[in-house]
Simulated scan of single mutants.
Amino acid sequence: MTAVPGTQGAFRPARLKWLLVVPLAVFFVVFFVIPVGLIFATSFNPQAIGQVNVTWDLTFDNYIRFFSRSNYLEAAGRSVLLGVIVAFVTLIVAYPMAFVIAKTEHPGRNTFLLILVLAAMQLDMVIRLYGMMVILGNNGLINQFLMSLGLRTNGEPVQLMYNFRGVVFGLVQFALPFMILTLIGVIKGIDPSLEEAARSLGASRRRAFFRVTLPMSMPGILAGSLLVFALSISSYIVPALMGGFRVGVLPIHIFQQVADSARFQFGATIAVILFLLSAGAVAIYLRLGKRQSGGLA
């Protein structure tokens, strides 16, 4: 059978395109799949203090211990609650800023606003948190201002740090740029003629926003919320500094089991639980995203 001239070479670009994926696939397997697989395997190994070798001696003792201790279950629930609250607060704070940046057509103003958002990401997280500690501490700027107005209850400072509230403040400050950048691209992609059509049909600017712009920006809202949720429940440095190790979340327990007690197997078990919580959030995101796109749930 005679081949049609040029048909064999037509497949070469497609083959080359798939070859471009190879470096990313190798990186993903080596630095994600294998480490996560080892963590899963370690979590089923018997407890051996100071030893991290993966063995074929499998047991569910670590998981039984996790689900039989109320402090670990409370830490899991607290982590999820923290992620939900931070995602909600961050969305409320970030959406107006993202909307203004997306609707600003002047190049200079748009660039200036983007620099304001990106500037926070250029500073090291520890430096940013120490800056917040200066503001939120017992003798910080906020408490000093309240004292000058005579608003401090019984002369005691308002506890804005080393508690759940302080961790929320720190995580919102940390995750805000990620939410803003996620929303900007989606809001920019909304066709302005749709809102203009709603206005021409008699809708007020507010009604056009809530009936057209906000629903069409839902993919960015879901994606940004998922990103912030994942960053929040997996954060260690923020609960450590802003919570003072007093807010028991799963990353804090992982650190204590691995670094303080050298119980690597149980630390891996907590890490697996944290991973499954993140995976559950991704599953919910995909389900909601499918509904928003008109697919079957």
Rank of each mutant, 00 (worst) to 15 (best):
F32Q: 10
L227Q: 07
F60E: 02
W18S: 10
F169P: 09
S261N: 11
A75K: 12
V36T: 15
H253P: 02
Y130R: 04
F88T: 13
L288D: 09
I135D: 14
I115Q: 06
A14F: 15
L136M: 03
S68W: 05
M147G: 12
V36W: 00
P13V: 00
F44R: 10
P5C: 06
V100H: 15
V272Y: 12
S193L: 02
A87I: 00
A119E: 04
L123K: 10
V22F: 12
V238Q: 02
F44K: 12
A41W: 03
L241D: 07
I254F: 07
I184P: 06
V33A: 13
G280N: 03
V100Y: 14
Y95I: 01
A76C: 07
A94R: 06
R207Y: 13
P13L: 04
P157V: 00
G267S: 02
L136Y: 00
G189Y: 01
L274R: 07
L183M: 09
M132Q: 14
F28C: 06
A223V: 00
T111Q: 15
M133V: 13
I284R: 05
G50R: 08
F245S: 15
R246W: 05
D124M: 05
T111W: 12
A198E: 12
F245D: 14
N143M: 04
E105K: 10
E195M: 12
I64K: 08
G289Y: 08
V33W: 00
Q8G: 08
Q8P: 06
S235E: 12
F245C: 05
V238F: 02
L91F: 14
L222Y: 04
V258A: 15
L82Y: 00
I270D: 03
F209Q: 03
Y236T: 01
S234Y: 01
Q47N: 10
R65L: 10
A98G: 14
L91E: 04
F67C: 06
P46F: 07
G155R: 05
L129D: 07
M147E: 13
S193I: 05
T153G: 05
S148G: 08
L113S: 09
G244D: 11
V100W: 14
V158G: 03
L183R: 01
E195A: 15
I221L: 12
P107S: 09
V282W: 04
S278F: 00
F28D: 02
G83Q: 06
G9R: 13
I142P: 09
V282R: 06
G137T: 07
L160P: 10
R211G: 06
A203S: 15
S193E: 08
V134Y: 08
H106Q: 13
L276C: 06
A10Y: 09
L296H: 13
D57V: 01
I64G: 03
K17M: 12
L123N: 11
M121F: 11
G185T: 15
G131Q: 08
E196P: 11
A281E: 08
N45F: 12
A283M: 09
T59C: 13
G9Y: 10
A120F: 06
S148Q: 05
G243E: 01
